[in-house]
Write a protein that binds this DNA or RNA. Structure first.
Lengths: 146, 146
DNA sequence: TCGAATTGGTTGCATAACTAACGATATGCC
DNA sequence: GGCATATCGTTAGTTATGCAACCAATTCGA
């Protein structure tokens, strides 16, 4: 087994396990410190609803890169916390349109500020050009695999 | 709420949710196709044992960037599949030294080949220099947060 | 040397992920 | 109209993660 396979293994964990979990963990911690009682996964769903309210669950799957069962449960939990409501579509009763509640809307400003701050901590010492390049690489990886 | 907050949100999902899960998912799929019945998380633990057998659970925590309960359960599952064994240390009976079984050792060649192939799929069209740079950025992110 | 603090590991609880299978509604074709 | 097919969402089962609390063994300091 040639040695470069091992360096590939390292690369694998760089892409999958390392920065991403650290960043998610830190954002979660920052939420908690400010008394925001949602998970980062729930936040990422709310994020898409802040951009466009009333999306279907399927559309949330596409935009958040999750499968259907994941979205079902995330919406379950968000609904239990009264941050969103399921409203079944009039034109197609199979679909649930997910709408923010007032409480859900209220989280936007604070949590996006916290996400912003967290990213600043994470990217300290990284030049904007390198950030862009890195983003491009990750996008390419995603496109190659999707 | 200034608009650049939204682009930061996008960046957040680039780092946390996008390439990393796609890559893990693809590797898992490739394992399954070849009849390798382990999860990618279990694989990442075995990976460190292939590099150095007989590590303690704590050392596996450090090297795989996981917390103690995660390693406890991963080792539980690996032990149940007879891929590793817990051997309590003679010099410090608190410690479990984790040793590969023959079955565990046998997975190395095939799975590392599969990981290699998966990374080649993932990184197609990305130059080695950009890979290095991206790796450096992710390392920096990790260091900033750890 | 004895009691406090530290370290290695486990357990409980909540959340989330994937796969597979399943209902219910819509659509399309004959 | 009626049956096959596709689409939207849910449920079940297994695995993994984080946090907090815990036990047992070890170490350290007065």
């Amino acid at each position: 087994m040639p040695n470069n396979h091992f360096s590939r293994g390292e690369l694998y964990s760089f892409i999958t396990g390392l920065a991403s979990t650290a960043l998610a963990r830190r954002l979660q911690k920052n939420f908690k410190q400010e008394g925001v009682d949602i998970t980062v996964e729930q936040w990422s769903v709310l994020y898409h609803l802040w951009k466009e309210d009333g999306l279907s669950q399927q559309e949330l799957c596409n935009r958040s890169f999750r499968d259907k069962p994941s979205i079902t449960r995330l919406v379950d939990n968000l609904e239990r916390q009264r941050l969103v409501r399921r409203v079944s579509s009039r034109t197609d009763r199979r679909m649930n349109m997910i709408h923010l509640t007032e409480a859900g809307r209220e989280l936007q400003v604070l949590t996006i500020t916290l996400a912003d701050r967290t990213l600043n901590e994470a990217l300290e010492g990284v030049s904007p050009a390198d950030i862009e390049l890195c983003k491009g690489v990750l996008q390419q990886v995603y496109d190659n695999l999707k």
